[in-house]
Structure formats: structure tokens, C-alpha cells
């Protein structure tokens, strides 16, 4: 059936898989490995015993403690990036079974519920690999600077409270502000592609993440001061117009941020800004 909604896939099916999982089973974990930038990748498969509550992190930790492949070959522990392990820092993002997501919230009971089930772990493809599953996401933060994603306050001296805000407005901003810069939206975006050279970052597509953050700060009373500057960037090469409306971003966003609404909202803003600019001077 026709689908214009921000989510696809069945939560019920996932819950059923979780319920069917047998504790104490052995699963296979295939990891795409790479020793460093410019080096070839290879696959290694590990056999891991998992219990209830096991996730990709605990599986990788087990492998690290005893890095032996299914062929019995001693290898090195898998390198990966992680932090909070509760899906608020965004660090442990990787491609699992072909789709991007956080590895900490990826439960084995759901992804490999049966004896001998296999999962595959790959690094994100839109950022340069550092080693194994660890990628360099500097561009993502660079893009935040590109759209001046901050409120230009006068300084940290005491100047009283900030602007009052309606609760409805707060709810909109809070949702946008939950973005943890994990990069899922960029990994899944067909318009956002690997750019190894930082010199290209200012003209390559900026992606849903930064567009949504630009909207967040344009919605703030004080943040509005930089609105035009942000819109100018988003009207330029790699700006919001480069969006191809595949809308994968909103489907893979782990925080369910209405990214496509942000894109449309910024679309409206640049439309109006473009028109007024054209007629102004």
C-alpha cells in the first residue's frame, strides 16, 4: 500500500523474534575489517555464545577478550567506536545486517534469535574508515559549523533569563535538539556520499542532520539573528535543494526526529528568503 509515513517495518514482528530467542545459543558474527585508511577490507567471522540482553556491544566485547575466528585463527580485537551504550551519544553507529543503526541498542534476541543465526557488522560507508568499524565523522561536525548551529549569545556573564517560550514551541525544539549527530540519516541518504577531501565538504550535500539543526536554531528567538546566514548556506551548493526526498533519513533516525519536516520547513524558509532577497536589492 502507498506509504508516506516516517516509519516502515513491524514492531510486532520484532517483539515476536525477541520472544522466540533462546538464551545460551551460539550465533555467528561476521565483521568487515580494515587495518586502516587505504587498505583492503576483509571479512572475519566469529562464533559467540549469547544470553538474554546481549547486544552488539557485549558481543564485540566478548570477541575482544578472545579474538579467535570460526576457523580457529587468532586475530586482533575488532576496533569500534562507542560511548554511552544507551543510545544518547551516537558513537557506536554502524551498519548491521546492511542497515545503519546504533550497535548498543541492537539486541541479539531480535537480530539473531535462533541457534547459528548470523549478523553482519560493517563500518558506515559515507565516512572514511579509521580502522575496522570505526569511521571518522568529522564532516558531520564541520557541517554544524557550516550552518552556524548555535545561539549567538552575548557571553556567559549574567544577563537574566532567555526568551520565554510556549510549551508547544519547546516541544518542537526539544525534539529537534535530541539529535545526537550519529549520522544514521546521512548513511542512509542516497544524496550524501563519501567525501574524503575536506575541501569538498563545503559544497557537498550537507544532509538532513545539519538542515534540521539549522531549523532548530532558526526557531529560537535569539538564534534567529543568524537565520539569514544559515539560509544563505542552505541555498548554496550542497544545501537543502540537493535533497532528493528519498526520505530514508527519517526512517532510520533512532530518535524519530521529524527530519523531513525540517527539510520542508527549511525549504519554505529558503523559498521566501530567495524571493525577498531577489526583490529587495
Amino acid at each position: 500500500m502507498l506509504n508516506f509515513s516516517p516509519s516502515e517495518g513491524s514492531a510486532a514482528a520484532a517483539a515476536a523474534r525477541r520472544a522466540s530467542a533462546k538464551p545460551g545459543r551460539t550465533i555467528r558474527v561476521s565483521v568487515k575489517r580494515c587495518e586502516g585508511p587505504g587498505q583492503d577490507s576483509r571479512w572475519e567471522t566469529f562464533s559467540v555464545k549469547v544470553d538474554r540482553g546481549a547486544n552488539v556491544i557485549s558481543v564485540l566485547q566478548q570477541i575482544a577478550a578472545n579474538p579467535v575466528t570460526v576457523e580457529g585463527k587468532r586475530t586482533t580485537p575488532v576496533v569500534w567506536d562507542s560511548g554511552c551504550l544507551e543510545e544518547v551519544c551516537g558513537a557506536c553507529t554502524m551498519v548491521i545486517n546492511g542497515k545503519v543503526r546504533q550497535s548498543c541498542s541492537c539486541l541479539m534476541d531480535e537480530y539473531a534469535p535462533g541457534e547459528g543465526d548470523e549478523i553482519t557488522l560493517e563500518p558506515m560507508t559515507k565516512f572514511p574508515v579509521v580502522r575496522d568499524l570505526w569511521v571518522d565523522r568529522s564532516r558531520l561536525f564541520h557541517n554544524l559549523a557550516r550552518v552556524k548551529a548555535w545561539v549567538p549569545i552575548d557571553g556567559t556573564y549574567y544577563l537574566g533569563a532567555g526568551p520565554r517560550e510556549k510549551p508547544q514551541q519547546q516541544e518542537v525544539r526539544y525534539k529537534l535538539s535530541e539529535c545526537m549527530s550519529c549520522g544514521c540519516c546521512l548513511e542512509a541518504c542516497p544524496q550524501f556520499n563519501l567525501e574524503e577531501n575536506p575541501a569538498d565538504w563545503n559544497t557537498a550535500f550537507i544532509g538532513a542532520h545539519a538542515i534540521s539543526q539549522a531549523r532548530l536554531f532558526n526557531e529560537h528567538e535569539t538564534g534567529k539573528a543568524l537565520r539569514d546566514e544559515r539560509l544563505e548556506v542552505l541555498m548554496g551548493p550542497g544545501g537543502v535543494s540537493d535533497c532528493g526526498n528519498a526520505q530514508n533519513c527519517v526512517k532510520v533516525c533512532p530518535k524519530h526526529i521529524p527530519l523531513t519536516e525540517s527539510i520542508a520547513s527549511v525549504g519554505r524558509a529558503v523559498t521566501l528568503h530567495g524571493l525577498t532577497r531577489w526583490f529587495k536589492a
Partner: peptide
Amino acid sequence: YARTGRANTSRYEYQSNWRYR
């Protein structure tokens, strides 16, 4: 413009992604 993108429907088989492609 189309050449700036790289379709990925094999991984993200969402309907909207198919429409993009």
C-alpha cells in the same frame, strides 16, 4: 542532479526510497 546521488534501495528498501530511485 541525478548523478549526484547513489541509489541504495537494496539496503533501504523503503517505498519512498524506491520512489527516489
